[in-house]
Design a protein around this nucleic acid. Structure first.
Length: 494
RNA sequence: GGCGGCAUGCCCAAGUGGUAAGGGAGCGGUCUGCAAAACCGUUAUUCACCGGUUCGAAUCCGGUUGCCGCCUCCA
């Protein structure tokens, strides 16, 4: 079975066939760098990161471009407010964006072009549109005349008549049609400006993606992604500009991710109901956030709440717990490796599960990147593996049993990583999780360790009343204790 | 007003015509000094509602209700 993707343009799932066999040209709209990113941006970044990872995994050579919009009204306003230059603002928030992406284990794209470094390419397209009579100058601005592009509206599924009729767009005396959009914006004195045939100015928002897509991926490329809110007008306008200028298909597959909601409402800057990535990472492990995002299909809305994120956290802890159990109770490698028959005889069900994993995982992901289903398969394998480990009590495994457990462990990790999950050692994950969560309790690790030691003394002396008192007290402060033959482990539950 | 999406157990969630995955929570059990964790068992004759197509529908078609999004900057 081949990869199928839902194409916003056709409103259908289609077989994915790249323009050039074996190669994928992939563009995702990045962010406008005027502020910190919120978890809506995180979702988009994570979703397309997984798509990128999956395309690589199935063997495509991928050129992945994600731009930065580093010049626009909001950046200029921000610079004025802070009494600085637009460049300083852009640089600051590009750095912050990279920090956030690193924290989220989002892989760097092949290229991260800046709008301001591609202005000649934008001017070229605008000139072409002017020559063809599709664009017009009005005052110091240049507009795209939507009526000259008959397919206008094909991505968002509406017609010019529909839009004009119910339009909330204010009538702009410069425009021939209220839906005409700006390609080049004349600068006011004091504003950043670039020279152009139409006087000093700056590019309109939409033209940058047309120019950068074309420059780095070609006049026609395979995939263009972004949030659903970009379908109109941003992507609609990109199509209009590029296709009107070159008379050829701009993008073959349009992919759009759903929103992050808060209490069932879209999170957005304008509504003010947003959490920045860095704020959330103060109390949620980045992998938990990834699992949370990927637990639902990328096109559906996802509701962000303590409860839904908490579920992801507990799920991830379960994965790592099982991985840790295997690592702690099996030798890393044994030779000669047992053959399949020997492995299967240890636990036919577990063996079947791990044998089926690659195919099931692939089927899920081939189905328009169904990460929720892929994760369900991972959980099923985890449960079988943990069940197998439990059969041996606390004993260490050896021989074929150990090898079967190791193999299942490796299969779990290998597939998890395609989703950017299970990338750490269990020990490191638990440590990071503890360090993150302990801050929320007001306790320090040392204090917890001391109390655990005191409880250990009480337990030795069979003073269970005192031992339980300490445990209950810690529990009240968000610390849960787990006794095991290897000692007492603790974790934070807040 | 126009366009589009969604409605699955207590909660989250997959399901793309063949008889309801997975996770969380709850309850019962195993383990434990007692717990916790883990594992086992258990929780939808039913998929918002009403019609229709079909041997067969959560899945297709029509209608109703509710929620959400886009049409303005927005991932």
């Amino acid at each position: 079975m081949a990869l199928q993707v839902y194409n916003t343009l056709s409103k259908k799932k289609e077989d994915f066939v790249p323009l050039e066999p074996g190669k994928v040209s992939f563009y995702v709209c990045g962010v406008t760098v005027y502020d910190h990113c919120h978890i809506g941006h995180a979702r988009s970044a994570i979703v397309f990161d997984v798509i990128y990872r999956y395309l690589l995994r199935v063997g495509f050579q991928v050129t992945y471009v994600r731009n930065f919009t580093d010049i626009d009204d909001k950046i200029i306003r921000r610079a004025q407010e802070e009494g600085t230059d637009y460049r300083a603002i852009a640089e600051k928030y590009i750095a912050a964006f990279h920090e956030d992406m690193n924290a989220l284990d989002v892989l760097p794209p092949s290229l991260e072009p800046l709008a301001t470094e591609n202005i000649p390419q934008m001017i070229e397209i605008i000139e072409l549109l002017m020559e063809k009579g599709i664009a017009y100058q009005s005052g110091s601005d240049v507009y795209f005349q939507v009526e000259k592009y008959p397919d206008y509206g094909k991505l968002s599924g509406r017609t010019l008549e529909d839009m004009v009729a119910g339009s909330r767009v204010e009538v702009d005396p410069n425009k021939k049609n209220p839906l005409d959009f700006v390609l080049w914006k004349g600068s006011k004195p004091g504003e950043p400006a670039w020279e152009s045939p139409w006087g000093p100015g700056r590019p309109g928002w939409h033209i940058e993606c047309s120019a950068m897509g074309e420059r780095f991926l070609g006049k026609t490329f395979d995939i263009h992604g972004g949030g659903k809110d970009l379908i109109f007008p941003h992507h609609e306008n990109e199509i209009a500009q590029s296709e009107a200028a070159h008379n050829r298909t701009f993008v073959r597959y349009w992919l759009h991710n759903g929103f992050v909601n808060i209490h069932n409402e879209k999170m957005s800057k304008s509504l003010g109901n947003f959490f920045t990535i860095r704020d959330v990472l103060e109390r949620v492990h980045p992998e938990s956030l990834r699992l949370f995002v990927l637990s639902k299909h990328y096109r559906s809305p996802v509701d962000f709440s303590d409860e839904t994120v908490g579920e992801a956290e507990r799920g991830l802890e379960r994965f790592y717990h099982t991985l840790g159990t295997v690592e702690g109770r099996t030798p890393p490698e044994e030779s000669p490796p047992a053959d399949d028959k020997a492995l299967r005889s240890q636990d036919p069900e577990l063996f079947e599960e791990l044998e089926r994993m690659p195919l099931r995982f692939r089927e899920a992901m081939d189905n328009d990147f169904n990460t929720a289903q892929a994760i369900a398969h991972l959980f099923t394998l985890q449960r079988h593996l943990q069940r197998f480990m439990d059969r041996f009590g606390q004993k260490k495994l050896k021989g074929p049993a150990a090898q079967l457990a190791r193999k299942a462990h490796d299969v779990l990790v290998e597939h998890g990583r395609v989703l950017g999950l299970l990338t750490r050692s269990p020990g490191r994950f638990m440590e990071e999780q503890k360090k993150l969560k302990i801050q929320l309790t007001g306790l320090t690790e040392e204090e917890v360790e001391q109390l655990i030691a005191a409880r250990q003394e009480a337990r030795k002396a069979k003073d269970f009343g005192e031992a339980d008192r300490i445990r209950t007290d810690l529990e009240g402060r968000g610390i849960l204790l787990e006794d095991s033959p290897q000692g007492t482990r603790w974790r934070v539950s807040v």
